[in-house]
């Protein structure tokens, strides 16, 4: 290599970023060229200076804040992940379906039937009327109504 290598080539040589053939060429040139040797020395000086600069470490407060952020997200993610799991939703869905079926099946017997006759109230009234002889005595529920009618006719 008779010509001086370009600056970026020298920097790349310094950083061992050239391929084998380029490295050999620059090395041979360096051995013969004092100007390029000087250039390399001064560039190496800058590189060494930067490498020797004090390294900063993350302040504790910042590290704690970031750890806390990661932790908060972790908890939230765990909850969301669990909720999205089939092993949670399959049994929940099955239970919900079973409960719905049960309600459907038991539905008619739940709550007051709007068509139901208030039997107890009627019987109480009947007992009162019977005591006052306003109605025929006897078991109204089990004796056919026709029997009561026949009995009443005979009495008349």
């Amino acid at each position: 290599m008779n010509q001086h290598p370009d600056g970026p080539i020298l920097s790349a040589y310094l950083d061992e970023e050239l391929d084998a053939s380029e490295t050999t060429r620059v090395r041979q040139h360096e051995a013969l060229c004092s100007r390029c040797r000087e250039e390399l020395t001064s560039l190496r000086g800058v590189k060494d200076l930067l490498a020797a600069a004090q390294r900063r470490t993350m302040p504790e407060g910042l590290a704690a804040r970031l750890e806390s952020m990661i932790h908060r997200r972790s908890v939230w993610e765990i909850v969301l992940a669990r909720l999205s799991m089939p092993r949670v939703w399959v049994p929940v869905g099955t239970l919900a379906a079973a409960a719905a079926a049960l309600l459907f099946w038991l539905g008619p017997s739940f709550g007051p039937d709007p068509d139901a006759i208030p039997l107890e109230t009627l019987l109480a009234a009947h007992a009162r009327y019977e005591a006052e002889s306003l109605v025929p005595s006897g078991d109204l529920l089990h004796v056919p109504f026709s029997a009561h009618v026949a009995k009443t006719d005979e009495e008349d």
């Binding site: 600056g7 970026p8 920097s11 790349a12 950083d15």
Partner: peptide
């Protein structure tokens, strides 16, 4: 990258 590094050092 090569150019930027060299230019930066210079």
């Amino acid at each position: 990258v090569r150019s930027r590094i060299h230019q930066g050092r210079t």
